[in-house]
Amino acid sequence: MLSIRFEGGNPDKPFVDVSATSRPVLPADLPVLSASAQQTYGVFNPQRLRFWSSAEAGAFVGTQPDMRVLAAPVRDLQPRPTPPELSLRPTLDTSQLAAAREAYADVDRLHPAHPGQARIFSEEDLQETVDAGTMFDVLRNGEWVGYVGVLPKPKHGLNAYSLQELILASACRGRGYGAALTTLLAQALPQGDRVLLGTIHADNRGARQAALQAGRVDIGGWSWLPLLHALA
């Protein structure tokens, strides 16, 4: 099943989404999907088609990998050592949101592709996670240095904790703390039978490596297929 979508809700960025399939997408399917997308939604002049696959990133020639889903049972992520200077405490309000936004801005300045890969959530989303009791301040030696939090909700057919945010202040990056945050988060969550699940852009190698080191597994992701014959 195909549907027309708009990136970020922007009407100037239409794309065709492979919303549902009866079997996994194979490389041989791409020409047919491309033709169907342009025939059905050509009036929108979509430039790309997005599809999901459990194949590794880059497995489809001529496509561009997008977000990957990395997941693992919470209980499997808990028994790992963490740096003694790091700890978590429940987030009580949104008072550190400005600092978190500055941390994102620092990453954006250092990595020009980052704004297209990840954005900090809104104040409303932060408050929702705080209200759920699953948002945490990251502390280093007792001082705030970041956020990590999830929402308990089904996703991709799994009984999941969906990762909402994981951000560290710039002074704490490059110290190997990323994997430790996943461990600390897993240890703080009350339901070990859930799956901790989050998306990371395929090109965000640092974040992906930290997730893999923490024990999460890449279970698949989306890819973009350019629609070379999109209407002018």
Rank of each mutant, 00 (worst) to 15 (best):
M1T: 12
S3E: 15
F6M: 07
E7Q: 13
P11V: 07
P11Y: 05
P11M: 04
K13M: 10
K13P: 01
F15C: 02
V16I: 01
D17Q: 10
D17K: 03
T21Y: 01
T21N: 00
T21C: 04
S22P: 00
R23N: 02
V25I: 13
V25H: 01
L26K: 05
L26D: 05
A28S: 11
D29M: 00
D29N: 00
L30V: 00
A37V: 04
Q38W: 06
Q39P: 00
T40F: 03
Y41R: 08
Y41N: 10
Y41E: 12
G42I: 05
P46I: 01
R48H: 14
S54I: 07
A55I: 02
A55H: 13
G58L: 03
G58T: 12
V61R: 11
V61S: 11
P65A: 02
P65F: 04
V69R: 14
L70C: 01
A71F: 02
A71D: 00
A71L: 00
A71K: 00
P73N: 01
V74P: 00
R75W: 12
D76P: 02
L77W: 04
Q78F: 04
P79L: 05
P81Y: 15
E85K: 11
E85C: 12
E85P: 06
S87R: 06
L92Q: 14
D93F: 12
T94G: 05
Q96H: 15
R101E: 14
R101F: 11
A103Q: 06
Y104H: 14
Y104L: 11
D108T: 09
D108Q: 13
R109G: 11
L110N: 13
P112V: 00
P112M: 01
A113E: 14
H114D: 03
H114G: 00
H114R: 08
Q117D: 09
A118F: 14
F121E: 08
D125L: 15
D125T: 15
L126Q: 07
E128F: 04
T129I: 04
T134E: 09
M135Q: 08
F136Y: 15
D137M: 02
D137E: 13
Y147M: 01
Y147W: 10
V148D: 03
G149Y: 07
V150M: 02
L151M: 12
P152G: 08
P152D: 14
K155W: 15
K155A: 15
A160I: 07
Y161V: 00
Y161E: 01
E165F: 06
L166P: 00
L166N: 06
I167V: 08
I167S: 09
A169Q: 12
A171Y: 13
A171R: 15
C172W: 10
R173C: 01
G174H: 10
G176P: 12
G176A: 07
Y177K: 06
G178R: 05
G178V: 03
A179Y: 13
A180D: 05
T183Y: 09
L185F: 14
A186I: 07
A186Y: 10
Q191W: 11
G192W: 04
G192C: 04
G192S: 13
V195L: 14
L197H: 07
T199Y: 11
I200D: 12
I200E: 12
H201Q: 07
D203C: 10
D203K: 15
R205Y: 15
R208W: 05
Q209W: 11
Q209F: 12
A211G: 01
A214L: 14
R216P: 04
V217M: 03
I219E: 03
I219Q: 03
G221P: 02
S223R: 12
L225W: 05
P226H: 08
P226V: 09
A230V: 10
L231M: 04
